[in-house]
């Protein structure tokens, strides 16, 4: 028994060496290109999915694809847990056990912060943590952000010549390569682009589109208000328009009223800080991975992948934990806090 893990490690060592050698060969054959970085999500459907009356047409973007994929992964995890509990296992194994440990840690955290309201707050916290975790870790999957459609570039600085790699069925498979463009631009079969081509990936991490963090932040902050009103009734708004001490102690009452208005402002700035925190961290992380991958294509990116693994996990936990703390603060109220 003691010998087997050592043998496996020996094999894994050769795998790692093989991949490093393959990486060196591939980087020599196709020198890496620093990809074109774009802040808004790229549209990958020609026609709009639906057209809403006020907002206008909504296209299928690559971050939307990533979010749908994350949903599918979460549903798969849920079904895996359901299958193993339906089998009547008392001790779960494999992926279900990992999920059980994660959710148990989250529930203990919720219970220690929110007390008796933990059961109502927990679903929001767990949903946010699981979704953000899966979405953030998608940037570690090879092919995300790098496999996609070739589009003609708009500016001269962004385009690259292309090289045909092969034909899959009837679809040509090509890659952009380093090098100067010819006078007439780049050509691929019948396609001709004046400024060369860029890659529009099929899947781009959903957190790098501000819409996803903003939607989660709005859900989190709005539900915090709903829970606050449910727990404290109309008295919840006394936190924002604090006129209790305004008449018997005018001087300090005015200060209390001002502080209440600041609380109101801070509710709105929560949306801003929630969404920018997640977006900024993950977008900067993916740009870091692009730049590192183009500067030192072999082995070094894996170190930064490790960093992004931790950043993605910490951001998911921070998003969930801040939701938890804001919700438990909103439901606790003044009366309980004073005693």
């Amino acid at each position: 028994m003691a010998r087997r893990p050592r043998w496996r490690f020996g094999i894994n060592r050769w795998w790692v060496l093989l991949f490093i050698v393959l990486g060196v060969v591939a980087a020599a054959a196709w020198p890496p290109i620093r990809p074109h970085v774009q802040l808004p999500a790229e549209v990958i459907s020609a026609a709009p999915l639906i057209t809403l009356p006020v907002i206008g047409p909504i296209y299928l973007t690559n971050t939307l694809v990533a979010l749908l994929l994350a949903d599918v992964i979460l549903l798969g995890l849920a079904l895996a847990v359901r299958r193993s509990t339906a089998r009547g296992q008392m001790v779960l194994g494999g992926i279900s056990a990992a999920l059980e440990a994660l959710l148990e840690a989250l529930f203990n955290l919720t219970e220690s912060t929110a007390g008796k309201r933990a059961k109502r707050i927990f679903p929001w916290v767990a949903t946010i943590v699981l979704l953000v975790l899966v979405v953030n870790w998608m940037e570690l999957i090879p092919g995300v952000d790098s496999i996609g459609l070739l589009h003609p570039a708009e500016g001269a600085a962004e385009g690259h010549p292309v090289q045909l790699l092969g034909v899959l069925g009837s679809l040509p498979v090509a890659t952009i390569v380093q090098g100067a463009l010819q006078e007439s631009g780049a050509t691929l079969g019948l396609l001709q682009a004046d400024h060369g081509f860029t890659v529009v990936p099929f899947v781009r991490v959903a957190s790098t589109d501000l819409n996803f963090p903003l939607a989660l932040a709005l859900i989190s902050v709005v539900m915090t208000q709903v829970y606050g009103v449910q727990a404290l009734g109309a008295g919840y708004f006394g936190k924002f328009f604090n006129a209790r001490t305004l008449f018997n102690k005018p001087m300090f009452g005015a200060i209390d009223f001002g502080v209440g208005l600041l609380e109101l402002v801070s509710e709105f700035s929560k949306v801003l800080s929630f969404s920018f925190r997640l977006f900024g961290n993950i977008f900067a992380g993916s740009v870091l991975l692009f730049v590192m991958g183009s500067l030192v294509p072999v082995f070094v990116p894996s170190m930064f992948m490790m960093l992004e693994f931790f950043v993605g996990m910490i951001q998911a936990v921070v998003f969930g934990m801040l939701t938890l703390i804001f919700m438990s603060q909103a439901t606790a109220g003044h009366a309980e806090g004073a005693h």
Binding site: S273, F276, R277, I314, V317, V318, M321, L322, I325
Partner: peptide, 9 residues
């Protein structure tokens, strides 16, 4: 972690 999150924001 909460304080770090606020400082980092």
């Amino acid at each position: 972690i909460l304080g770090i999150a606020f400082a980092e924001a």
